[in-house]
Design a protein around this nucleic acid. Structure first.
Lengths: 136, 136
DNA sequence: CAGCATCCAAAAGGATACTG
DNA sequence: CAGTATCCTTTTGGATGCTG
C-alpha cells in the first residue's frame, strides 16, 4: 500500500475551527470515501438521527423516518449493525419485538452528524432560493 | 431512559455537548432529507473538502478527489454552484482557466462537515473490522 | 410484528468521443 | 484546459407477496 502515515486522521487541529491545511492526503480520500459512502447516505443519516433519542422498534423507526420503505429500512439497519453502529435486540415474544439502539460508536457518529443536521436545517431556505434563482 | 417528555427539550450527549433533541418534526424530515441528499452526497463531501484549502482549478479538483469521473465532477460542481456553495470564475485566456472557490455559505458547510470527516478518518479502521467480522 | 425474496422501474455513474 | 454529449452498465429503491 501507500506509505503509511501511521494515523489516518492526522488533522487533529482541534483548536482550529477551519482545518485549513492538507488534512486529507490524496490516498486517504479513497478510504474516507469508502466510509462516507455508507455513512453519508441519506437514509443512514436519518435513521441515526431517529435513534439518537434512544432505542426504537423496527416499526417505530419506519414511522419516524417518513418515506423510507421497508426494504431500505432493513438494508440500512443491517449495514449499520454490521458496521457496529447499532445493536439489534430480539425479544422472543409473540408477536416478536426487536429493538435497535446506537452503540458507543453510533453515538459518536451521531455527534459528528449534529452539525450537519443543524446546517441543513439552518440553510435549507437559502439553498432552495439559490437553486430556484439559478434555475431561471 | 430517555424521558419523552411532552416536548423536545435538550439531550446531554456522551460528548457532553448539549444537543437539541430533534427539533425536527416529521414534516421537516422530508425537507432535511432533501438538503442532506444533495449535500450529504459522497462526491459533494469530498469536493467541498478539497476546496476547503482555497480555490482550485477544475483539473486540480479532479486530481485531488481521486476516483471521481469527469462527468461526476462537472455535475457536482454545477449543483454546488446552483446551490450557492461554490463560485465559478472563468478566465478568458487560452487555454481557458476556471477557478472554483467556496462561498461564505460553502465555508459554513465545510465547517459542518469537519466533524464528519474527522469521525470517518478516526473510525474507519474500526468500521472495516466490524464489517469484516460481521461478514464472517 | 419484523422481516426476507423477487421483480422491475428509475437513477446514478463510468467510459468514450467530441468541442470551444 | 474545461468542459458537453452520448451510450451503456451498475446500483438503487419501490412494490408486492410470503414467512415465523
Amino acid at each position: 500500500m501507500h506509505a503509511k502515515s501511521s494515523q489516518e486522521g492526522t488533522f487533529l487541529s482541534e483548536t482550529n475551527k477551519f482545518v485549513p491545511t492538507e488534512a486529507l492526503g490524496p490516498a486517504d480520500c479513497k478510504g474516507l470515501a469508502e466510509v462516507l459512502m455508507s455513512v453519508g447516505d441519506k437514509w443512514t443519516i436519518l435513521v441515526v438521527g431517529a435513534l439518537s433519542k434512544g432505542q426504537l422498534r423496527y416499526n417505530e423507526i419506519q414511522r419516524r423516518v417518513s418515506g423510507i420503505s421497508q426494504r431500505m429500512l432493513t438494508l440500512t439497519l443491517k449495514r449499520l449493525e454490521a458496521d457496529g453502529i447499532v445493536t439489534r435486540t430480539l425479544f422472543p415474544s409473540v408477536p416478536p419485538r426487536v429493538d435497535y439502539e446506537l452503540t458507543e460508536l453510533g453515538m459518536t457518529l451521531r455527534g459528528a452528524l449534529v452539525p450537519l443536521h443543524r446546517w441543513a436545517a439552518g440553510n435549507r431556505q437559502a439553498i432552495l432560493q439559490n437553486r430556484a434563482k439559478a434555475g431561471s
